[in-house]
Amino acid sequence: MPKGSPELTASRKEEIVNACEKLYQTMSFKEITIKEIGAVTSFTRTSIYNYFQTKEEIFLALMQREYEEWSAEMFALAEENSAMSAADFADAIAHSLEKHEQLLKLLAMNHYDMEEHSRPERLTEFKLAYSASLDAVRACIRKFFPDTDCESFIFVFFPFMFGVYPYSVATEKQLEAMREAKMNFKMHSIYEMIYSCVIQLLGGK
C-alpha cells in the first residue's frame, strides 16, 4: 500500500470501485479486466495494484458497498418504525432490494469467484459488511415480528436472494430460447419475488 493519507487511499479505492461499477453496466464479469478498469480511472493501471491485487477484489469491494448501503436502509427501517404489518415490511424490503439490483446480480453470477480470488483481509472486510446485513434484517424481524423464528427466516431468505436476479432479469437470447423450448414460464420482477417470499416466510401476518 502506498504512503498517503487515509482520505487519499479511500478516495482512490472509491474511484476504482466506481470505475468497475460503470463497466459492469455494459460488460460481463469475464470481459472486465484490470486494464479496462484502469482505462476509466484518473491514474495508471499499475497503480490499481497498490489497492487491489485482483479484479475479484474490486468486485468484492463493490458488493461490500452494496451490502453496507442495504444494511443501513434495513437498520433505518427498524429504527424509524414502531410496528409494521407483514405486507408493509414485505413492501419495504422488496423496494429496498429492487434498488440494489446490482447486489442481486453479483450474488447470482460471481460471488464464489470473488471470494476465492481475494486476499483474506479483503474477504474479512466483506464478511463484516455481510454480517451487518444479517444483523439489520434480524433487527427488523425481532422488532416487528417477535413471534417469528428469526433464524429460520434468515436461513431461507438470504439463500433465496442468490436466485432472484436470474429469475427476474433475462437477455433477449434467453427469452428466445425459452420461447423456442415452449416453456410455460413467466418472468417476475425483483419486487414481486422478494415481496412474495417475505409474505410467505411471515405467514401473511
Rank of each mutant, 00 (worst) to 15 (best):
K186D: 11
R12C: 05
T41M: 09
T46V: 15
E31L: 10
M1E: 11
A76S: 13
A61E: 14
Y24P: 03
A87L: 10
E80N: 13
L128G: 03
E80F: 06
E180F: 04
S71F: 03
N18Q: 14
A90C: 07
S47A: 15
S118P: 05
I199Y: 05
V156I: 15
A181W: 00
K35S: 12
E115W: 05
A86E: 04
S11Q: 13
C197M: 14
M27F: 14
F126P: 01
N50T: 03
S42T: 15
E172D: 14
D113S: 13
K105P: 02
I37P: 00
F89E: 01
S118D: 06
K127R: 14
A72W: 01
A87V: 11
E180C: 04
I154D: 05
A61F: 04
E79T: 09
H117S: 03
A139R: 10
S152D: 13
E151G: 07
L104I: 08
I16H: 02
A39V: 07
A83Y: 14
S85V: 03
F29G: 04
M84K: 13
S42F: 06
E192T: 11
R138I: 10
M63C: 07
V164I: 14
C20N: 07
V169R: 12
E36L: 11
T26W: 06
D88F: 05
E56V: 05
Q200L: 11
K143W: 03
T26R: 11
Y191G: 07
A177E: 14
V137Y: 04
K186F: 10
K205P: 02
L134Q: 10
A132W: 00
K35V: 11
L202N: 02
A19T: 08
F29C: 07
F59H: 04
R179N: 11
K99M: 09
C197H: 03
A139L: 10
V137R: 03
I16G: 01
M178C: 08
I141S: 00
L23R: 01
A108S: 15
Y67R: 05
S28T: 15
A10D: 11
E56S: 10
G203D: 08
Q53K: 15
S28E: 13
M27G: 02
Q174V: 12
S196T: 15
S28R: 09
A19Y: 01
V198W: 00
K22L: 12
I16K: 04
A86P: 00
E115D: 03
Y49V: 08
V198M: 02
L23A: 06
L128R: 13
